[in-house]
Every structure is written in structure tokens, then in C-alpha cells.
Design a protein around this nucleic acid. Structure first.
Lengths: 144, 144
DNA sequence: GCACGTAATGATACTGCATATCAATGCCGC
DNA sequence: GCGGCATTGATATGCAGTATCATTACGTGC
């Protein structure tokens, strides 16, 4: 539950472990992502890397998604965004002001999920839980 | 927590209350929506109502969204869908097999939200909670 | 060190979902 | 009946993402 703790994985190594080649475009993308503190959109990455084709950007993001080191989420409007993930199973907080994405894995959530199994008819396959916040850093500015 | 209980609002009356005109296209759309048992997509509505322009369908859905009688949600793949809403504040279960949307408002969820306020840095503005399930009706078929 | 096969790339086109534009129409009050 | 605003729908556009496909790069076996 510490938002500032950043265990940043070596994304390229992750891809390599999965048997993918280390190529120049992939390294370019991955290096950019590793520097991102906030959530990001695919189009943003594409714009920042004019020398890499859009297909490659989307492909690489998809590889990272499958590898579990990147998460796809949505901002409050439902627009898609991505964020690096550090923990295994977690949920997200998205600051509507600065776009920073936090992860939390409160024990209460997991307890809730177990309790809810009785409340929900049928078999639970998956869930989506996201919180939209004004983060501590943005709160002072928002108050003005 | 009763999925089959359907208090179906008169959608046209809702729009009228907000000061919008009762027009033929809007009535056509609204009548179709009122018959929907499952979640639906905008394109589905557009396809079923060839005489109504797509802009009008999207516009009407947006009016209903703002009025709070329709909810926008996402299926497990993240594809957007809509559903009529009956209760005030609730969350959704989406059956991945038949697309039926259930609402639940388990007390545990609200308790969770209050407890989480301490865990999450900053001020919570909103959240998104969706469960993807195989509903009781589809379970037998899924087992085969 | 070369040839072959597969992985990867990127230009382009396309799909799905949704909004913007805008001229035409319709309804309402006066 | 007229002036004005709400509404409509055809069309264009935008955004997110995938499909296609010819070309290039890589790595492995020989």
C-alpha cells in the first residue's frame, strides 16, 4: 500500500524471458515506458516515438500486458490508459488531476471478494476495480 | 441483491422531466431500450433501428446516462456496453456468456469503500467496480 | 560464411465506438 | 403565421486498436 515504492522491473528482460527478441524498436519503447511515472496512453507513446511504427507500439504493449508487467485500465471517462505494474494482484487508483496511477492491495478488498461470492449469482470469472482520486500531491492545487 | 426484480422506469417520462422534447425518434429508441433484458451496445440499437440516425441514438443514450437511468459499463474485454439501471447506487455483474447485466449493492461493498478511504492516499472521487461472471442460467451450459 | 526459415517491422487500410459539423426540419410560443 | 430554438440525420472526423502484407533482420544449421 505504498504508492511511492517503485520496484521497476527490467521490461526488456521480461520480454526476453518469454522468448522474444531484443530489437531496437522494442528497446526504444521499453526504455520510454520505464521512465513513465504516471499512467500513459498508447497514442502518447506513438507520438513520442515517431521512428517506431504504431503497430509495433501496440504490439509491444500487448506483449507486456500478457507478461503482466503492464496493466490496462481506464480513466474516469472510460478512456483507455496503461500503467506499469509492480505487484502481482492489485487494483488501481488514478489521479484525475495528474494521471498518476497507484496500486493498492488492501486486505479488505480480498476479503470483500470472498464475501461477495455468496452475494453474486453464478461463478465469478473476473473483476475490474478502479478508484478515481485527487492524489495527495494534487489536493492542495485542487483546493485553490 | 435480487437480479430479477425489475422496476422499470418510464424512460421517456424521465427525459420529459428534464425538459427534453418527446419526439418520435426518442420514443422509438426508448421503447426498444425498455424491452432490453440484457446489457446492450449502442451499435446494436443503431442496427435495430435503421430509421433513426446513429447520432440521435448516441445522443439519446447520453441523455439517459446523464439522467442516471442508464449505466455505461464494459464487458470483460473492455468493450463498452450499456444497461438500464434500476437502483440508485450499485455495481454490476456481467455474464460473459449471455450478456445479462445484474445489479448488486452489497453492504460489504459500501463498508469496503469506507474502510478503503484510509488506505488510499488523497480524496476519492469515484470508482468503477464490475464483476464478470457466468450467471446461474448459463452455468449448466458452460459446464458441458 | 551462406542460405534458409522465422520473427519482427512499419506503412497502410480498416474496424468499432463515439463526437463534431451543419443544413434541414419540426415544434412552440407569441 | 412567424421567429427561434430544439432536434434530427448525413457526413466527416477522431481515437483506439487490429489486420494485412511486403520488406527487413536475425539466428541456426550446415
Amino acid at each position: 500500500m505504498n504508492q511511492t515504492q517503485t520496484h521497476r522491473p527490467d521490461l526488456m528482460a521480461v520480454l526476453e524471458d518469454q522468448g522474444y527478441r531484443v530489437t531496437a524498436p522494442r528497446q526504444t519503447i521499453v526504455r520510454l515506458l520505464e521512465r513513465k511515472q504516471e499512467g500513459f496512453t498508447a497514442e502518447e507513446i506513438i507520438a513520442e516515438l515517431p521512428d517506431v511504427g504504431r503497430a509495433t507500439v501496440y504490439r509491444t504493449i500487448k506483449l507486456l500486458l500478457r507478461a503482466g508487467v503492464v496493466c490496462k485500465l481506464a480513466n474516469m471517462d472510460g478512456a483507455p490508459m496503461y500503467s506499469l505494474s509492480r505487484a502481482e494482484h492489485h487494483h488501481h487508483t488514478v489521479c484525475v488531476a495528474c494521471g498518476s496511477v497507484g496500486e493498492f492491495r488492501a486486505a479488505t478488498v480480498e476479503r470483500l471478494l470472498r464475501g461477495l461470492a455468496d452475494d453474486i449469482p453464478g461463478q465469478i470469472l473476473g473483476h475490474r476495480i478502479e478508484f478515481y482520486i485527487t492524489c495527495d500531491t494534487c489536493l492542495p492545487a485542487a483546493a485553490s
